Simulated assay, not measured.
Amino acid sequence: MIKEFKFGGQTVYNVTAQQLSDMGFFQSDIDAALKAQDITDVDFNRRLAYLTDSDPLYMEWQYDKTDTKEKEWRAKVAEIKARYPLPGE
């Protein structure tokens, strides 16, 4: 699903690649929109995971200043990046 597709002054919301193809858009433009949507989705999921999972660990590390807490925080960040890889990573 592509949440927002802009092309030539037109904007279409919440459409599938097939629907865009049926509307007559070029496949190369559809592919570019799908790639951009993938990046947007990964970015959103990473930000949410950082907020809920790694930021609390970061705050604990800032409070404790121990190597153990730093390692826990950095491991969680690495796990989030592995869970939500950017296209091409």
Rank of each mutant, 00 (worst) to 15 (best):
residue 31 D to W: 03
residue 59 M to Y: 11
residue 84 Y to P: 06
residue 20 L to V: 15
residue 7 F to K: 09
residue 27 Q to F: 12
residue 42 V to Y: 03
residue 53 D to Q: 05
residue 45 N to K: 15
residue 2 I to Y: 02
residue 80 I to S: 00
residue 45 N to T: 09
residue 49 A to P: 05
residue 56 P to A: 04
residue 86 L to Y: 00
residue 21 S to T: 10
residue 89 E to T: 04
residue 34 L to T: 01
residue 8 G to V: 03
residue 58 Y to H: 14
residue 65 K to G: 13
residue 31 D to N: 10
residue 85 P to G: 03
residue 81 K to F: 03
residue 44 F to I: 12
residue 67 D to Y: 08
residue 82 A to P: 02
residue 18 Q to L: 09
residue 22 D to C: 00
residue 35 K to E: 11
residue 34 L to E: 07
residue 78 A to K: 05
residue 3 K to P: 04
residue 28 S to F: 13
residue 30 I to W: 01
residue 43 D to S: 12
residue 72 E to P: 00
residue 72 E to Y: 01
residue 82 A to M: 03
residue 67 D to M: 10
residue 24 G to R: 00
residue 1 M to D: 10
residue 51 L to Y: 08
residue 78 A to Y: 01
residue 46 R to I: 04
residue 19 Q to Y: 08
residue 40 T to G: 11
residue 73 W to E: 06
residue 60 E to F: 00
residue 73 W to A: 06
residue 7 F to S: 04
residue 62 Q to E: 15
residue 63 Y to G: 07
residue 27 Q to R: 14
residue 31 D to L: 03
residue 59 M to F: 11
residue 40 T to V: 12
residue 74 R to M: 14
residue 72 E to G: 00
residue 60 E to A: 04
residue 24 G to C: 02
residue 89 E to C: 02
residue 36 A to L: 09
residue 50 Y to E: 07
residue 56 P to E: 01
residue 71 K to F: 13
residue 45 N to Y: 13
residue 68 T to G: 05
residue 11 T to I: 14
residue 36 A to C: 08
residue 64 D to M: 10
residue 39 I to V: 12
residue 76 K to M: 13
residue 54 S to K: 00
residue 32 A to T: 11
residue 79 E to L: 04
residue 53 D to C: 02
residue 47 R to F: 09
residue 49 A to D: 10
residue 31 D to M: 07
residue 83 R to Y: 06
residue 14 N to G: 14
residue 40 T to K: 14
residue 80 I to G: 02
residue 64 D to W: 07
residue 8 G to A: 10
residue 73 W to Y: 14
residue 18 Q to I: 10
residue 36 A to E: 12
residue 64 D to P: 02
residue 84 Y to L: 04
residue 32 A to M: 11
residue 39 I to S: 00
residue 67 D to A: 13
residue 53 D to F: 01
residue 77 V to A: 06
residue 38 D to L: 08
residue 10 Q to V: 02
residue 47 R to N: 13
residue 41 D to Q: 11
residue 19 Q to L: 03
residue 52 T to P: 02
residue 41 D to S: 09
residue 34 L to N: 05
residue 44 F to S: 13
residue 17 A to T: 06
residue 68 T to I: 06
